[in-house]
Amino acid sequence: MKRRHLLAAFASLAACRRSLKPRLNVFNWSDYAARDTVPAFERRHGVELRYAVYESNEEMLAKVFSGNSGWDIVFPASSLIGPMRENGLLSPIDRSQLPNLANLDPRFRHPPWDPQLEWCVPYMWGASGILYTRKLNPPPRRWADLWDPRLGGRITMLDDPPDAIGAALKKLGFPLNSTNPAELDAARAELLKQKPLVRAYLNAEARDQVVSGDLLAAQMWATTARQAMDAAPHLAFAYPEEGFSLYADCAVVLKESRRHELAHRFMNYLLEPETAAAVVTECLTATANAAAQRLLPPSLRDDPVLYPSPEVMNRGEWLQALPPAAQRLRDRIWTIVKSS
């Protein structure tokens, strides 16, 4: 009798631990979901969601590369879609299960990194530019202004090789994704020339220091800059005249996932205009969803930092995956710049 009680107790314990609800595992960037995005999906479909966030592509890749990370959906940057597919990490998208794909902005229906959207669903996008304080007169308009001695010691560059090297390449009039050794060498010389003026190589941490006034200008991602401007009205953002980098974070289903149907249901949910609009309103990001953009309050919808005009967008260039030789050369350049 006693033993039977014990067994029953174990059985109920086991039942508690493994709830019968199907569970989906979603690994996303921080700031990419509103407070109610996940709970609303759970309520509507009676499923459980394990949702966690990361801060860099590398952090996510290090886990996913093992092939048994336990995640179903992750959100890599557009330049990683090709490499991840070639490494056999992705499972193809079934478009018939995603009627809401029609809501995507036409620009994201046939993107260069996945023209038929066979492997990914564009979610949010962004660009790099210059966050600066309005005290600066004249205000910076070009990457070349970050080489101006009058800003000496009061600027930061991104601690991110494609963007920092990219700014030097654009300043020189070369393509952002250049693999040409001569062009890259010229970019290295530019970055070394700039280094005495650079206070530090920082990513999002630079935001607080522009707000506090420690810095006059910083190379920054547009959405991060927009969040800073929300806190500090004395800040402004410029899309450099020479051109700038563009990236999109896209939802993908991992090959290891065994919940394809549920994964597609979740992606279709993210593509609903109301879902995406709620995320943008709360997190101040730029959605790839045109129907959602129409739902936004005018102040956000017409925000020139989050949604620049077509003329500005024409200067943008998508970051691409580069061949190994160019990657190695760029890594060497970055090591030289940071250690000189």
Binding site: D159, R199, A200, Y201, L202, D331, T335, K338, S339
Partner: peptide
């Protein structure tokens, strides 16, 4: 250091 003086640990991490 603001990532301006790379040390051996940063090289490995990078």
């Amino acid at each position: 250091g603001g990532g301006k003086s790379m040390m051996a640990g940063n090289l490995v991490q990078n």
